[in-house]
Design a protein around this nucleic acid. Structure first.
Lengths: 367, 367
DNA sequence: CTGAAAGCGCTTACAG
DNA sequence: CTGAAAGCGCTTACAG
């Protein structure tokens, strides 16, 4: 029964709990207890276990085996829309991660950043292979294969920004009322001729003007909600929405904002105010306006969405809708953890936003 | 043999591979092959496997069980000195993570951020419990319990900035020559009266002047290497190192830099130039100098180390030693991956640094 | 305070 | 192209 040591050692494998138990002449469970339930055995025996472990080069119970037995990994998975390295270059994403990590850390959970996806080359399979207890899906379009893969995995999942489906916990802002606040600000200043730079409205990656039909039928709720917010505010002020040009961008980059603005600003009846669905787009709009020799905010008012750090330092500083990305991350993390703990935790209230008025908006020049 | 379905279903557990195999009347290995080796079975059978899986709500092989069997997790662990949320607030750390994540992603590996540690409350045990294939230890003092725990875990480990021990792969910059370059720059400008704001030199958290003995005997190689670099450069110019006041700070914060400078600048023979071991410390030095009514760089030259984003936007902009944090992360990630792959990969060369001359340094006023 | 047995859910040789 | 068996390394009831 003893003397395991004399057996032909197969290639000197890493020491195991069982091996330590044999060496010591106790049962594996005693060794397990030494690590996991100190109260279950005498301090002296526990000491002997650790000594033997040390001597055999046993570093403690293998976390993978423990995970299999216990059914959990101790990590939250974060799924990001793009390459991970982009997440660390995106100030909003970094703030969001800061929030998620603080929630995870409160519960002694790790954060696993899921690799391998870019919009061009989706590797949704990895979502099924990753060792986590649940997912936070951040900044991923609601019909994306990454979201599907996360939901199919059958683990608790919280979706951020883009609601995925009925019943899936969601964290985000009230896009409709936030967008309305942006439009109302411009109306108060006296603007009547608007243009909108929107996120994408379909999988087709279309770039150009979106008619009312396309606006209404889009499956992208964030895009739709923001358009609805703009429309509602303008409607209240008797600005007919059907006459407001909406330029759709297949993404949210400065370059796309630039393109959109080039088109919008060459319209026969040039808008005096442009509403952009993100600060990135808005900054591109400002680039285009400046390029065209327009002076901001005199010739054109611009409002963004997000309040990224670059918004405040833009020239002129960008008026925008601020959201608290870190708080969003914290809420997403906490909501996921509540699900993990078996709580039937409801999705929390939507996060509040705030209109931040800066130098990129003013009364229209011709009023 | 069949009809597993008719057996008393214990609480409707999650479906397993075995369950799918029973349902289909094939062996578990066939189901496993359907997921892992498509070529091993007919497309038709494979389809039937997936259909059955779908019907039973089986989401594919459990990654934990697979991990146990295969002996790997598919994730790299990143150990950070402080709370994770601080890492996402630290621009150098974020750039570093960006680099590590790009290396991980190249190999389809996830990044697990290890939770639960702050300098005040170390939870090194978590390092033994986390499901990863190896560790990158970032920004952790070489005698810290986190480093010990990572090494004891017995997984491949790469240490960054603070070399941990002989034989442990290491990524960092040449601290000695970088520090020397900083001092040489000041010497070239004509400075002869120096002061140094150093990192900590011991576990005791001491704050104050460090004598030669303490400088020489410190176990912190980074602190020592930088002091040696300063000393070597000054020695070459016949500035006696023994007369250069070295103020030791138990950390690297703006507040500590402030404190150090308050003391150094009230010395009877006031230095005309201060060398700081980090930009954070240097910014604190500048705060203190301004507070005291000194004008920079006329009354005092300051050189930092790191080139964090705040350095360029400081007033005046900070002269410093630039290091490429993202590249450092990428190298650390690649080095770890090479170890994982069984390569006996040597530690790569030290990363190069670059003196960036900005407005915080000038000829001494009284020369 | 300690043990013997079962089993977490899969994949890996070894056979055919 | 498919199977039966062994086993990855642990922890969890169940007993005593």
């Amino acid at each position: 029964m003893h003397g395991g040591e004399s057996k032909e050692p197969h290639r000197q494998r890493r020491a195991t709990l069982k091996r330590v138990a044999e060496e010591l002449g106790v049962s594996p469970m005693t060794v397990s207890n030494a690590y996991n339930r100190p109260g279950q055995l005498s301090p002296a025996l526990r000491e002997r276990v650790f000594e033997t472990a040390q001597r055999l080069g046993y570093a403690g119970p293998d976390p993978i085996a423990r995970g299999l037995r216990r059914g959990r990994t101790g990590a939250l998975g974060v799924i990001y829309d793009s390459r991970l390295s982009y997440a660390f270059a995106d100030t909003a994403a970094v703030a969001f991660m800061r929030g998620v990590s603080s929630a995870a850390e409160e519960e002694r959970l790790g954060l696993l950043l899921v690799p391998g996806s870019s919009p061009e080359q989706r590797d949704a399979a990895i979502v099924g292979e990753v060792l986590v207890d649940g997912f936070v899906v951040y900044s991923v379009a609601e019909d994306d294969s990454l979201v599907r893969a996360a939901l199919e995995r059958g683990l608790p999942t919280v979706v951020v920004d883009q609601p995925a489906a009925e019943g899936v916990p969601f964290v985000g802002v009230d896009d409709r009322s936030s967008a309305a606040a942006a439009a109302e600000h411009l109306l108060r200043l006296g603007h009547r001729r608007f243009g909108v730079v929107s996120f994408g409205l379909g999988r087709d990656g279309a770039k150009g003007f979106a008619d009312l039909e396309r606006q209404r039928t889009t499956l992208y709720r964030v895009s739709r909600a923001r358009l609805e917010g703009y429309a509602a505010a303008l409607g209240t002020a008797d600005v007919p929405w059907s006459e407001v040009p909406v330029f759709e961008c297949p993404g949210s980059s400065r370059a796309l904002g630039f393109e959109a603005a080039v088109t919008l600003l060459s319209l026969p009846s040039r808008p005096t105010a442009l509403l952009a669905a993100s600060d990135q787009l808005a900054l591109g709009v400002m680039d285009a306006a400046t390029d065209r020799g327009l002076s901001l905010p005199n010739d054109l008012s611009v409002v963004g969405f997000d309040d990224i750090p670059e918004a405040a330092s833009a020239d002129p500083p960008l008026t925008t809708i601020r959201q608290d990305h870190a708080e969003k991350g914290r809420m997403a993390g906490r909501l996921l953890i509540a699900r993990l703990r078996g709580g039937s935790a409801e999705s929390p209230e939507l996060l509040t936003t705030e209109l931040v008025v800066r130098g990129s908006t003013a009364r229209p020049h011709d009023v």
